[in-house]
Amino acid sequence: MSGTNLLRWTTLGLLLAFLIFPGRFAPVFAPLTHYGAPPIYDQGNLLMLALAQLGTVCCAAAASTLVAVGLGILVTRPAGAQFLPLSRTLVNIGQTFPPVAVLAVAVPLVGFGEKPTLIALFAYGLLPIFENTIAGLRSCPPTVLEAASGTGMSGRERLRLIELPLALPLILEGIRLSLVINVGTATIGSTVAAKGLGEVIIAGLLSSNTAFILQGGLVTGLMAVLLYDGLATLERRVSRAVPLD
């Protein structure tokens, strides 16, 4: 356990050190460049770009969590049950949309910049959360639900006090999946002028500077791994707090 912890904190420390003092890492990346090209991305602040990307991803994830959990609750209530089969089919169809296509189609609607990226990430993040919300809400044991009704809880109380807490680990897992996918997908947003680490990668592709590509890719990858790991820890805490058998 302490080994995992050590690895976790070393990774985080290394990532932060690189983002705050990128210049110190120049000797590491220098062998990857040719003809005296800069070894460290010099057309913008790496820390700002990383934070901008993280911000876009988190905004999109917050919006998709609200909508997906809301929809998931709606279709598992008696009043919305009729929409359940259709919404599941839609989730499956939605997964076949490539993120680039969503991004490209959003551009003419809202223009270049952050907005199309936000829309694409929002739409793409909906699916795992929605699916897991439904799975979580439907996996509540019927005996527990009956017991709750038996103690005189209203439908709303039962949802708030029993069903949602029981479904929380699965919902968190959905949020985690969607966040990790979106951290990577957000780099594609740079093709439509969104601020983010994709900028670094694309600058590297355009000037065939492998050092830039590696920096953008590694920072994005590390952010995704750390997010995945952090949220997984949170999930374990939550599911331990919910005693369910």
């Binding site: 951290v183 594609i188 990668i201 694309i202 592709l205 890719g217 590694l218 995704a224």
Partner: peptide, 17 residues
């Protein structure tokens, strides 16, 4: 799993070298 977290455009780029 770690490979999956590397964004597609970066992995494409990294493999170019």
């Amino acid at each position: 799993g770690v490979i999956q977290t590397i964004p597609a455009i970066a992995l494409f780029g990294i493999l170019m070298a």
